[in-house]
Amino acid sequence: MAARPQLAPLLDARARTVSLGIDRSLPLADPLAPLFPRGLPRGSTVVITPRSGITIGLALTAKASARGCWCAVAGVADLGACCATELGVRLDRLVIVPNPGPLWPEVAAELLEHADMVLVRPWGKASGSVARQLAARARRYGSVLVVLSGPAWPETPDVVLDALKGTWQGLGGDDRPSRGHLYGRLAEVSASWRRGHPDTLYCSLWLPSPDGMLAPA
C-alpha cells in the first residue's frame, strides 16, 4: 500500500512524455511567433522569397537546433557561420552541404528523412514534380522543408515568408557618413499561409538585432 502514493507522479511523468511525443511543431524563436500563430508544424513546407535573404532562414533553425533538433543547410556555399551562432543556431546540430549542385533534390530528400529542418537553395529551377516529391517527403518524415527560393518554387507551400528589404541602421547620415558600425536591420516580414489564415500576417523584426540575434522591433 505504501507504493501507491508514488504512482501518481510516475504516471504524470509518463503522460508528459507522451504529450511531448505528439507535439507536432518545431520550436521557433519567440520574435517569430506573430508569423506562426500555430507554430511551425512538422511536415510543412516554407518558401522564403529571394529578396528576403538567408538570415530569416537561419533564424528559423535557431530555436530548433538549440533544443537539439538536427538542422541542415544545402546549397548555400557561402554560409556565414558567425552569423548563424549569433542568431542562436547551435552549430553542432547544423549539417552543411555547401555544394550539392544538380543533385540537390536527392540531397534534400535524404536530409528530410533524417533531419528535423532542412534549408535548401535549389540549383537552377525546380520542376513541379521535384517540388511535390520533396514536400511529400517532409510530410512523410515529419520534417520541415525550407526553400531559399532562387527561381520561383513551382508548388504552393504551406507558408511563404517574405522579408521586405530591411533598412540597415548604424551607418551613414548626412553629416558624417563614416560614423559607427552596422548596428542592425529593421525588416518588415510577412507570412502568407495557404490555409487557416485568410490574411497575410505581418511583423516587424530586427533581422538581426545589434547583438546578432532576432528581436521584435
Binding site: T85, L94, V95, G101
Partner: peptide, 26 residues
C-alpha cells in the same frame, strides 16, 4: 542523437563524394 544523422551523411557522401558534408566551428 547522431546515429541517424551519420547514416544520412554516409548516404550523402556516397552521392556527392567524401568530405562534402561539413560542420562548422567558431
Amino acid at each position: 542523437g547522431t546515429g541517424e544523422m551519420s547514416r544520412a551523411v554516409e548516404a550523402l557522401e556516397t552521392l556527392l563524394g567524401e568530405g562534402t558534408v561539413l560542420m562548422a566551428h567558431i
